[in-house]
């Protein structure tokens, strides 16, 4: 699994951080997404898919 994020589209909803904090974080100054781990281990795959599904700005792309 490989993750690609689009910081320009991000609206800082933080739902990715809630879904899987090991993979996503937010910038302190404006809450925009920061990718901590672009190739997360398999046990986080379903949480990462959940994060992508709930992102309101469609700023997370998951390549399987």
């Amino acid at each position: 699994m490989k993750i690609v994020i689009d910081q320009d589209r991000c609206i800082a909803s933080g739902q990715c951080v809630t879904a899987v904090g090991e993979v996503f974080d937010q910038r302190d100054e404006d809450g925009v997404v920061v990718l901590l781990d672009p190739t997360p281990p398999a046990e986080l795959a379903s949480a990462v898919r959940q994060a992508a599904a709930v992102c309101p700005a469609l700023a997370i792309r998951v390549e399987e």
Binding site: I11, A12, D25, D28, G31
Partner: peptide, 17 residues
């Protein structure tokens, strides 16, 4: 919209909350 919204996003990050 993005210009104004980004100015007020900081206090609402998951960590700050």
């Amino acid at each position: 919209h993005a210009r104004l919204r980004r100015m007020v996003q900081a206090p609402f990050t998951v960590r700050r909350v």
